[in-house]
Design a protein around this nucleic acid. Structure first.
Length: 573
RNA sequence: GAUUUGGUAGCUCAGCUGGUAGAGCAUAACACUUUUAAUGUUGGGGUCCUGGGUUCGAAUCCCAGCCAGAUCACCA
């Protein structure tokens, strides 16, 4: 493996070997005690200089400026960067200057982790720096990091910007572009704020199955897998709603879960196959109560992340303090199209879609047609937080029928910046009604609707034992984080967004070469010489190959044993 | 899935109407005791994404494929 690399990586491996020869372990096992971080020094040193006279700091070397027997290096820890001043005669007080001349100047590289002890001071040019008196190598970096340079105004000169590499190698991205860490720190803050709020209300965090025999609770195509011992198919959950409701049946007054959901559908900048949802169910409440709860919750989140209920997103300023605007689904369509769809039957809706130039297909029922009109004509207008309420019953098999409006259910969705952020119901707890509604879904499935909800007999049995009136809410955490961190793609708020596998260099199998007697460590050399298959190698002149192997060994400074000539000749026999 | 843009050194990118590859940073060597995008001098470093085709000759033109981004469609 080590030979597909080139000079910089070979040099670093040599430096690592040199360190070992000098008796320095490039990967020491001992803990290195740290008593300060970069942010702390920068924030507090000027005020309190006496506290920084004996510090111990650890981080990565991110740049070096060597000037003879004095040097500057930028060290980066989890909180930021701080400059270190290293003077030869200070870290090497005796005759032996090896630690500076050889170890620091020759054997250390950008990316290495080191620990330093010393004191904080301000340089002539006014930079708060660490004056190093002792230096310890903590971990050697064998691959060169991309170098990102910034000037005083913060201009970036050689940015590490390729999104493919940033997502595939997030460890490199966050090392050289540490500003992106704030997105993930804020993501954590969003989740913790919600969790603290729920806990303070006395609701309980729970975990429910990810592997489910029936994929219920939402409309989406699932990932399917198989359990060997039970010899049965299982689905990765597309939702956890039905399990959380079982817990309300079981007698908990409030339960919530943050968890990954999995949907086997398209990927784009707002969809990843696995994503995080938060669902919460509270007994003895309805969807009107839930609206107020959401307003309180999101305001707390905005305050935690930004210190303000107002959040800048793209070119808008979003106000997360409630109350939010409320608009029924029918009214919203009327508002933005001028059309009253409330009394239309399926064929009238089809005509309306045609008039509005909205594509439809024959499998769509009344609910889906209305949803199409809504998503094409209304969603984009909903910039400030807006509740869309009272959905047609056909679209929502798990919500309770509206207390006063025929044909509707008690449901709301919260839209911000034209995107759905939350979805909530007064939950359907009438087991007879629930069974009928799921049976209607089966009819839709029969019409070819791949997303119609499946029947879940055990869930119906739970309802038959009795579920208290309950309101439930789901929030898409990734999209909420996108809003709170002003990001336009979901990949930027996921550490490891889903990617196609990296293409592998099309190398023939190691085994083929080993089979004809080539030592494993020489296979990469042969490949580097241009022989990609055993056949190509055998077609070459054996003497030339033998000579070239020696040449490559020297050129690439390989420390592996040269094979005997007779051995090489046998490769060709 | 459709359209479109891109894939060249470790990183960011040049490379015209086809003539066998360049810069900056990084890296190596030398100089330099307070620099900060350090500087100066001198080097090394490439399967130009892959596979076909056209051509005397392809990083460049054509076709197919792979990966990624954007837009759209689908999907909450």
């Amino acid at each position: 493996m080590s030979i597909g690399l080139f000079e910089q990586e070979i040099l670093r491996r040599e430096a690592m070997a040199e360190l070992r020869k000098l008796g320095i372990d490039p990967y020491p096992p001992e803990a290195f005690e740290v008593n300060v971080n970069a942010q702390d020094i920068k924030d507090n040193y000027e005020r309190d200089k006496t506290s920084y006279k004996n510090i111990s700091f650890a981080g990565r070397i991110m740049s070096r400026r060597i000037m003879g027997s004095a040097s500057f290096a930028e060290l980066q820890d989890s909180t930021g960067r701080i400059q270190a001043y290293i003077n030869r005669d200070e870290i090497c007080p005796g005759e032996d200057k090896t630690l500076y001349n050889t170890v620091f100047k020759k054997l250390l590289d950008i990316g290495d982790f080191i620990g330093v002890k010393g004191y904080v001071f301000t340089t002539k040019t006014g930079e708060i720096s660490i004056h190093v008196s002792e230096m310890t190598i903590l971990s050697k970096s064998l691959k060169p990091l991309p170098i990102v340079k910034r000037d005083d105004e913060g201009h970036v000169y050689d940015g590490f910007t390729d999104p493919e590499m940033r997502y595939r190698q997030r460890y490199v991205d966050l090392t050289v572009n540490p500003e992106f860490k704030h997105i993930f720190m804020n993501r954590s803050k969003v989740i913790n704020t919600m969790r603290n709020y729920f806990d303070s209300q006395g609701w309980m965090e729970v975990e429910t199955p990810i592997l489910q025999p029936v994929h219920g609770g939402a409309a989406a195509r699932p990932f399917e897998t198989h359990h060997n011992t039970l010899d049965m198919p299982l689905f990765l959950r597309i939702a956890n709603e039905l399990y959380l409701k079982r817990l309300i049946v079981a007698g908990f007054d409030g339960v919530y879960e943050f968890g990954k959901m999995f949907r086997n559908e398209g990927m784009d900048r707002t969809h990843n196959p696995e994503f995080t949802a938060m669902e919460i169910y509270v007994a003895y409440k309805d969807y009107i109560w839930m609206m107020a709860m959401v307003e309180e919750c999101l305001e707390k989140v905005a305050l935690a992340v930004h210190g303000s209920s107002k959040v800048k997103v793209a070119d808008q300023e979003i106000e997360f303090a409630g109350p939010y605007e409320k608009l029924s689904m029918y009214d919203s369509i009327k508002k933005y199209t001028g059309i009253d769809v409330s009394a239309m039957d399926e064929s009238a809706l089809r005509q309306t879609c045609k008039d509005l130039k909205i594509e439809i297909d024959p499998t769509m029922g009344r609910g889906k047609l209305i949803d199409e009109i809504f998503s094409k004509k209304v969603e984009e207008h909903l910039i400030q937080p807006t509740y869309i309420t009272d959905y047609p019953i056909e679209m929502t098999p798990l919500a309770k029928k509206h207390r006063s409006k025929e044909g509707l259910v008690e449901r709301f969705e919260l839209f911000v910046m034209g995107k759905e952020i939350a979805n909530a119901y007064t939950e359907l707890n009438d087991p007879i009604d629930q069974r009928e509604r799921l049976e209607d879904q089966l009819l839709l499935a029969g019409r070819g609707d791949e997303e119609a909800m499946a029947m879940d007999e055990d869930f119906l049995r739970a309802l038959e034992y009795g579920m208290p009136p309950t309101s439930g809410l789901g929030i898409g955490i990734d999209r909420l984080v996108m809003l709170m961190t002003n990001q336009s793609t979901i990949q930027e708020v996921l550490f490891f967004p889903q990617m196609r596998p990296e293409k592998k260099a099309k190398l023939p199998s190691l085994e083929d070469f080993i089979a004809i007697g080539v030592p494993a460590e020489w296979v990469p050399v042969i490949q580097k010489m241009g022989f990609n298959t055993v056949e190509e190698l055998k077609a070459a002149n054996p003497n030339k190959v033998f000579n070239d192997l020696g040449g490559m060994r020297k050129k690439m400074k390989l420390e592996i044993t040269m094979p005997q000539k007779e051995v090489v000749m046998e490769w060709f026999s």
